[in-house]
Amino acid sequence: MNYTLHQLQIFLEIVEKRSITKASEALFLTQPAVSIQLKKFQDQFPLPLTEVIGRQLYVTAFGEDIAKAARRILDEVATIDYRTKEYQGKLAGKLSISVVSTGKYVMPYYLSGFVNMHPGIDFNMDVTNKQKVVRDLEENRVDFALVSVLPENLSLQQLPLLKNSLYLVGGSERERNRKGKKETIFKEQPLLFREKGSATRNAMEAFIYEKNFPVAKKIELTSNEALKQAVIAGLGYSIMPMIGIRNAVEQGDITVIPYKGLPIHTQWNIVWLTNKKLSPAAKAFIAYLEENEQAIKKKYFSWV
Rank of each mutant, 00 (worst) to 15 (best):
N164I: 01
A216I: 08
K299R: 08
L221R: 00
K283I: 11
A230Q: 03
T21D: 13
R176C: 03
H265E: 13
L191P: 06
E205S: 13
M240F: 06
S223V: 00
K297S: 13
M107P: 09
L156R: 08
A69C: 10
G180W: 00
T274K: 14
D65W: 08
Q56M: 14
L192D: 01
Q157N: 15
W303V: 10
A145T: 05
F213M: 02
S155W: 11
E86H: 01
F144A: 05
K298C: 11
K104H: 12
L235I: 02
K283Y: 02
I97C: 12
N116W: 06
N177F: 15
E225F: 09
S96T: 15
Q251T: 14
G63N: 05
S223L: 07
H6M: 14
T60A: 05
V99I: 15
K211C: 07
F62W: 07
D75Y: 05
V271S: 00
N2T: 09
I264H: 04
A226F: 05
F41C: 04
G244K: 05
V77T: 14
M125Q: 07
I36Q: 13
F285A: 06
G89F: 00
Y82W: 11
N212H: 14
Q37F: 01
S302T: 08
P258N: 07
L29Y: 06
E25M: 14
K85A: 12
I270S: 04
L5S: 12
G252C: 10
E250I: 09
T266A: 01
L150T: 08
R72Y: 06
P280S: 05
F11K: 04
Q157T: 07
G120H: 04
Q229Y: 02
I80S: 15
I219R: 12
P258C: 02
K68S: 15
E175W: 09
D43E: 14
I254T: 05
G171D: 00
E225Y: 11
L159D: 04
F123Q: 12
L221E: 02
N129F: 08
I10R: 00
G54I: 03
S165K: 08
A281H: 02
Y300D: 06
L289M: 04
N124K: 08
A226R: 12
A287T: 13
E138R: 10
I66A: 01
T21P: 12
V106T: 01
L74R: 07
Y82C: 12
L262C: 09
R141A: 08
I219F: 07
A33H: 04
S223Q: 00
P258Q: 01
T184H: 13
S98G: 03
V115Y: 10
